[in-house]
Simulated assay, not measured.
Amino acid sequence: MTAVSYLIAGMVVWGGIGWLVDHFVGTRGIFAGFGAVLGVAGGVYLIVRRLGA
């Protein structure tokens, strides 16, 4: 359950930050997509680092 929460939280937080950047820059979803991918990558990193999976 912890691993799933790391993935979801990373995607939501970094995707949200990307959405905010999209809003201020005027693009349509480019940074939100990058942010979501970055969030998933960060979540996988945390899973491997903290849980040793």
Rank of each mutant, 00 (worst) to 15 (best):
37 V>P: 08
8 I>P: 00
32 A>S: 15
53 A>V: 14
7 L>G: 02
21 V>E: 09
18 G>V: 07
29 G>V: 06
33 G>R: 05
52 G>V: 03
36 A>L: 15
20 L>N: 09
15 G>T: 03
14 W>M: 11
47 I>T: 09
3 A>S: 07
1 M>A: 04
7 L>F: 00
11 M>Q: 03
21 V>N: 08
2 T>Q: 06
53 A>E: 11
19 W>V: 08
31 F>R: 11
41 A>R: 06
17 I>T: 03
29 G>N: 05
51 L>I: 04
4 V>F: 05
11 M>P: 07
50 R>A: 13
11 M>W: 07
12 V>C: 01
13 V>G: 00
9 A>Q: 01
35 G>F: 03
31 F>T: 10
40 V>S: 08
32 A>C: 11
47 I>N: 11
36 A>P: 14
40 V>E: 07
51 L>F: 06
18 G>S: 02
7 L>N: 00
25 V>P: 13
41 A>N: 03
24 F>E: 11
34 F>L: 15
37 V>E: 07
25 V>L: 14
46 L>K: 08
43 G>C: 15
36 A>S: 14
44 V>H: 08
40 V>C: 09
6 Y>L: 00
21 V>C: 10
30 I>N: 13
30 I>E: 13
38 L>T: 05
50 R>I: 11
47 I>F: 10
48 V>E: 14
27 T>N: 08
34 F>N: 11
35 G>L: 02
7 L>E: 00
15 G>N: 01
10 G>D: 02
25 V>E: 14
2 T>F: 04
50 R>C: 10
35 G>Y: 05
45 Y>W: 15
33 G>E: 06
20 L>Y: 08
33 G>W: 04
5 S>Y: 10
51 L>Q: 05
47 I>V: 12
15 G>W: 03
45 Y>N: 13
8 I>S: 00
14 W>S: 11
13 V>P: 00
30 I>T: 14
4 V>D: 03
25 V>K: 14
6 Y>M: 01
20 L>W: 13
45 Y>I: 12
14 W>V: 10
4 V>W: 05
16 G>D: 02
35 G>S: 04
37 V>H: 03
30 I>W: 13
48 V>P: 12
24 F>T: 09
3 A>Y: 04
43 G>I: 13
21 V>I: 15
18 G>I: 02
27 T>L: 12
1 M>I: 03
38 L>Q: 05
31 F>Y: 11
46 L>D: 07
23 H>E: 15
28 R>H: 15
25 V>I: 15
31 F>V: 09
28 R>I: 12
29 G>D: 08
40 V>H: 07
11 M>E: 03
39 G>S: 06
41 A>Q: 06
24 F>W: 09
53 A>T: 07
22 D>T: 07
21 V>S: 10
16 G>C: 01
41 A>M: 09
17 I>M: 05
49 R>N: 14
27 T>K: 10
22 D>K: 07
53 A>F: 12
45 Y>D: 12
35 G>Q: 06
19 W>H: 10
53 A>D: 11
34 F>M: 13
13 V>K: 01
42 G>Y: 05
9 A>C: 02
2 T>G: 05
13 V>Y: 01
